[in-house]
Design a protein around this nucleic acid. Sequence first.
DNA 1: CTGTAAACCTGACAAAAGTCATTGTTTCAG
DNA 2: CTGAAACAATGACTTTTGTCAGGTTTACAG
Lengths: 229, 229
Amino acid sequence: MKNRCENCIVRQFNSLRAMSKEELKRVSDSKITRTIKKGQAIFEEGEKLNGVYCVRDGVSKLSKLSANGKDQIVKLASKGEVMGQRSVIAEESTNLSAVAVSDMEVCFIPKEGIVDALHKNPNFTVEVLRHMAHDLREADDVIVNMSQKTVKQRIAEAFLYLRDNFGADTDGFLNVTLSREDIANVVGTATESCIRIISEFKKKKYIKTSGKKIGVVDEKKLRDLVDGF
Amino acid sequence: MKNRCENCIVRQFNSLRAMSKEELKRVSDSKITRTIKKGQAIFEEGEKLNGVYCVRDGVSKLSKLSANGKDQIVKLASKGEVMGQRSVIAEESTNLSAVAVSDMEVCFIPKEGIVDALHKNPNFTVEVLRHMAHDLREADDVIVNMSQKTVKQRIAEAFLYLRDNFGADTDGFLNVTLSREDIANVVGTATESCIRIISEFKKKKYIKTSGKKIGVVDEKKLRDLVDGF
DNA sequence: CTGTAAACCTGACAAAAGTCATTGTTTCAG
DNA sequence: CTGAAACAATGACTTTTGTCAGGTTTACAG
C-alpha cells in the first residue's frame, strides 16, 4: 500500500520486472506527494519539468493553448497514469498544461532516477519505448478522427470513450464530470455547438443528464453515429 | 557512399555513436534495396512488417483509411526517413499505408538487427526513445491544428510546411508535387474545397502554379493567415 | 498524334459549424 | 440564506465546408 507510486510507474511503463529492485527503491524513496484542488494547475505549457507526475487519485486534463485562444484537451489522465514523461525524456519543455478536473492526489518523481534507469536498464527502456510507440499510433487515430469526423460524431465518441476509460456509477452516470466547455475542448468545437448537440442527444435518449452528470443510455445508437450509421 | 543506408538509420535515430561498429555492419549487410514506381504501395495498413523501410530517394505518403472511405495522409517521408519503426518496435501491425508519391528508391532493413540492438545497446534505445518522444509532441501539435484551424489556414500551413521541409527549385516551385486530392487528404478536407482555396490563393498572389507545380509567392501573407492575421 | 482516363475546375445548393446576444440555472463563498 | 459568478441553454444569424453535377484541361499509352 505504501508503494502505490511504484505501481504508477510500473503500470504506465508496463514493465514490472524491467526495473531492478534498487531502481524501484530509489524512485520510491525520492517521491513527493501533493494534493491538488479542482481547477488548480499542476504544470503549465512551456515549463521545464524536472520530474514526472504520477496520478494517485482524481483526473487531470492535459491541454494546449491554440492560436485562437482556445484550449485543446489532448488527454485526460487518471489514477495510475504518468504525466510529463515526454518532456523529461526528450529534455524539452512541456508542450502541455496539466490542470485538475477534480480534486487530486499526485506524486512527483524527480527525473534523475528515471533518466538513470533509462541509461542503465535496456529492458526498462525498451518497455518505455514500446509504450510510446503505442501512444504514437493512437495519436494517428486521433488525427484521423479530428479531421474526418463531424463534431456530432466526435462528441458521441467522446462519451463512449469516457465511459470505457473512466467507468460509470451504479446509476449509469460517468465517473468523470466535465463542463460543457471542457467537452467542447476535447472534441475541438465551440461550447455552444457542444451544448446543442448534447441537448439533441438527450432529446433522442442517447444520453441522460442530472446536473452536470452525464450518462450513456443508448450505446448502440451512439456507436452507429460514430461509424457513420 | 555504399553505406548510405546506415546513414538513414543513424540520421533517423539521431545517434551516430549509439550503434556499435558491429551492429551497424550487421544492419548494413542485411539491407535490400528496392525501386518503387510512383503510385505503387510499399506496404498497406494492417500488414505485419518484418523490418523497416528507409527512404533513399523520392517521397512517400503515409496514410490511413478513415471510416468515410477517405485517406488521411499523416506524414510525408523523404530521403533519410525511416518508415515502419512503430510497428516493429510495438510488435503490432502497421496502422498506416505507404504509397510512393514520386518514383522512389528504398532499402529494407530486417527487424532482427534493430530489435537486437534495442535490447543490447541502451544508448541506442534512449536515442530512439527521444526521437519518438519528439514525434509524439509533434503529433499533439497536429491534433491542435486539425481541430482548431480552418481549412484555409491548414492549406496555407501545408504549403509553408512543404517548402520548409522539401525545398523549392530555382523558380520557386516546390520540390514535391502532390495532386489536389493528396493535398486535400493532408489537411483533411474535400478535394473541391481544396481546389477552390488554391484558386483563391492564386488569385490573391499568395502562390503561383505551373501545371501541377505549386510555388509559394507571398510567404508573409500565408503566415499571417495561419496565425489568424 | 490522338483518344481517353484522370485530374482539375466551377456553379449551385445544402448541411454543418461558428458567433453573438440574451436568458435561465447552478453553485458556492461569505 | 443569498447574491454574484460561473455555467448551461436557446434563438437568430453568418460563415464555412461539403456534395452533386456538370464542365474543361492535361497526361500519356498505344
